Structure formats: C-alpha cells, structure tokens
Amino acid sequence: MAGTAPPAASTVPHPRHPSDPRAGQPGRLRHWYENDLGWATVPLSPGEPLRLVTGVRFDVLEVPARAGVRALRHLAPGSPVALQGGRARLLVAAGSAEELPGLLDWLEWGTAALDLGLRALGAGDAMDAPARPGPDTPVQGAALWLRPPESGCEVEASLPTLSAMGGVGGAPDLVRLVNTVATECHRIRLRRADHGPQHGQALASS
C-alpha cells in the first residue's frame, strides 16, 4: 500500500442536471422516487432537502469523487452513482455497509482504512436525494446523478454485491469495487501528504 503515488489521470465527468424547475420541487421529486422507482424517502421537514432511505433497496459507499470515477469500470452500466460536495456515492447492495469493515480488514487495509475517506450508509441512514437528470444548471451544493437510476427497472440487479465475488452471476463484485476505491483513496492521501509541506513552504516564503 505504501509508495509514491502515480500522477492523477482521471477527471470527474459532468453530472446530469435537473431537466426543469419543477424537478427540484420536493413533491414532484418525491413522487418520482417513491412511485416511479419504488424507493423509500424520509418524511419531509420544512426547508430540508428530500432524503432517500438506505439499507432497504440499497446501501451507499461514499468516497472522494476521484475515487468514485476510478470505480466506474467495476460497475454495471445501470448501477447508479451520485455526486455531492466533492464526494461520490456509489449505490451497492443492501447489507454491504455492514460488510465493509470486515471486507477492508480482509483486503489487508486494516486500521489504515479509517483514514481513507471511505464511508458506508446502510440501515438507519439516509442520503440527500439527487434531482432528476436533465440539462439545466443545478442548485449549488445539491446532490446530482452522475449515473441516474432508470424508471421501471429493478436497481438491485445492477448493484455490486458480496455474493458476486469470483464473477458469479451478473452483478458487479463488491470486493473488487471496495479494493479499487480503497486503493485510490490511499493514493489521494499520499498526494496530499506529498504536496502539503511544499505548499506550506511556498506560502511561508511568499
């Protein structure tokens, strides 16, 4: 795991933005998630964004956006991915959040995993609901779909799962996905460690 990090080569693709002003209205957005997709939402509070319940249809693996982009090749084409605040949220099979600590340990990341910037959302958690995809300018700081879910499709079949280890079935392999994002998170941490002191010295001498 240790060593000099290679130069960054990937860029974050542009997410898909809300298609019209009505798409951002909580009532219409909630209808899309609950009726078209069959996803549970958290009861709305005045002035708060709509949130999606995790741990029922899916869990979420939240990582730095660059690590999320690196992981796209390990996801099925229909596997949803959201972006918000420089973080990527990869939808994974329900129950994966409980498996993550043991999986990271099995992959020999050990205590280093605590500093990787990996976070899992599962039962009892929730994530901000991204707006429906479209070409319009997004609200600053709002969650957006990089890979949106498709109405009328069962999302579970496209989600990374531990049971797919070794290529069994059509679902992506959760082990390979976690190892990919953990490796990229480690590289990001190494880059920051390498650039931090130099940046500080440059500021001090200016």
Rank of each mutant, 00 (worst) to 15 (best):
A2K: 15
G3D: 14
P6M: 08
S10W: 09
T11C: 06
H17M: 12
P18M: 12
P21T: 13
A23K: 12
G24S: 07
P26K: 02
G27Y: 07
W32T: 14
E34L: 05
V42C: 01
P43E: 02
L50N: 02
L50K: 02
R57M: 08
D59E: 03
P64M: 05
P64L: 08
R66H: 10
A71C: 07
L72M: 10
S79P: 00
S79L: 01
L83K: 01
R87Q: 11
S96N: 06
E108R: 15
W109V: 00
G117Q: 05
G122L: 03
A126M: 02
A126V: 10
M127Y: 07
A131G: 12
P135M: 04
Q140L: 09
A142R: 05
A143E: 04
A143Q: 00
L144V: 02
P148F: 04
S151W: 10
G152L: 02
L162N: 00
L162T: 05
S163A: 12
G167V: 05
A171E: 07
V175N: 01
R176W: 00
L177Q: 00
T180E: 07
T183H: 09
H186N: 07
R192L: 08
P197G: 13
P197S: 14
P197H: 14
G200D: 12
G200T: 15
A204T: 15
A204W: 13
S205H: 15
